[in-house]
Design a protein around this nucleic acid. Structure first.
Lengths: 236, 236
DNA sequence: GCAAAAGTGTTGCAGGTACACCCATGA
DNA sequence: TCATGGGTGTACCTGCAACACTTTTGC
């Protein structure tokens, strides 16, 4: 390869979203090394020789969450390559959005002092340009709820229609009419598959449990009302 | 930077779409150098030191089309990094989608023997993984027509509602009712701004000329009918 | 006047919103 | 029986599909 061409280090950064305590959460790690030592950042790492970026993202995800890919949604967001975004040199990072059901408390990895689930709405400044990446990834997730079945990726194997509705409400920051929502998602072919089981709430009528159906697209889409005020209050 | 970390060369590849002769066209170049010498490929090139990828994409676009960015839509599609995708070594490419009004015939660049506008529906195999990139970018464009004002980026400064409708018809490969389409786009606030001028067709009533409005999102979206059979017949 | 393309009116249907109402359970 | 969340029925409203109809030009 021609020596004139810029050589760059390639990393993968993950925006791992889940819902805990009726809040949208993102996994953050406290950096154990320079640069940005002691600051909060998105989990990520370097790609290995002969490793595809999708595989690198999967590997990092499994290292951070301990879960294998079966129940996890993972897709590329975009690539960030502004010169100077990493003080160590030319580092190009490919950002991934991961969506997972409620996960156990994270453990600190090799490069991290500690890890936590942070409220997306309360995330302040982050290391590198990770605040930008987080904002882009969350907007992508919000948008994808509209015309894909991504919401189901926030739910465990078996879930109720209410669980699914809460995903929309928490991610969008809106209220949705439970009755109309129920009809809409149950009536959308391939979104949900009814299971034999039911779940009893603490009080009230038991709810049918569903698992994810084969559909990935939602047609017609579940449009956000324009009065959805959801936004990240990040100090960019 | 730690020597264990993989160093990669970073390139930018462009999927430049336009409409000519009522067909969706993509700019292809015939490679003048190895590898894949003599084969058709997407235009692209290496990023420079201290150059952001968005700027690299803009620069390549201006080099290939001779146009500056004012009337051009340019956005990232995704990043391709499969090991072995470039026989010269580890090359990571960031793909961009560019949309432009009908452009002049391209001229061959430094690295290209020749260049042409190819019918998207008739593109066969391409160098590297460019057939994959083209497919992803075209699907992105088709999808973005639904919920953004991207269609106007295919039109020159002044255009008629019919021009805009032809964009949808050509990109989606469908027929759209001219009467309903007219009402929809004229009624969508911020999509079109009426100009004082009109244009006379060879035969028929003159049409009002519009320019792009400030809106970028389309709400409610312009949904494709599911019977749209548009697809690329590319030999991947 | 005629052909052709631009643009308007109108009707019917699909799907969403709002909300009254019924159902099934625990206490 | 009451409280609570699950789920259905229904009336209304919005917006698109379909298509008849009017308008404005060149020839």
């Amino acid at each position: 390869m021609n020596r004139e061409h810029v050589q760059a280090t390639v990393t993968v950064d993950l925006v791992i979203l889940t819902i805990r305590d009726n809040r949208l959460k993102v996994l953050l790690i406290e950096r154990g090394n320079q640069p940005f030592q002691g600051q909060w950042a998105l989990p990520g790492g370097f790609i290995r020789p002969d490793e595809d970026i999708d595989d690198a993202a999967l590997r990092e995800l499994s290292e951070e969450t301990g879960l294998e890919g079966r129940h996890l949604h993972l897709e590329q967001v975009r690539t960030y390559a502004t010169p100077g975004r990493d003080p160590r040199g030319r580092v190009v990072t490919v950002a991934y959005l991961a969506v997972a059901p409620d996960l156990p408390m994270p453990t600190a990895g090799s490069d991290a002092r500690s890890a936590k689930w942070a409220n997306v709405s309360r995330v302040g400044s982050l290391a590198f340009d990770h605040a930008d990446i987080l904002r882009d990834a969350v907007e992508m997730a919000r948008s994808k709820l509209e015309y894909t079945t991504l919401a189901a990726a926030f739910c465990p194997e078996l879930f109720t229609v209410s669980d699914l509705r809460r995903v929309y409400e928490v991610v969008w920051g809106t209220r949705i009419d439970p009755r109309n929502f129920h009809r809409k998602v149950v009536g959308t072919k391939g979104f949900l598959e009814q299971s034999a089981a039911r779940r009893n709430p603490l009080i009230g009528r038991p709810a049918l449990l569903y698992r994810r159906g084969p559909a990935t697209a939602l047609y017609p889409p579940m449009l956000r009302r324009s009065d959805s005020l959801a936004s990240i209050s990040s100090a960019t």
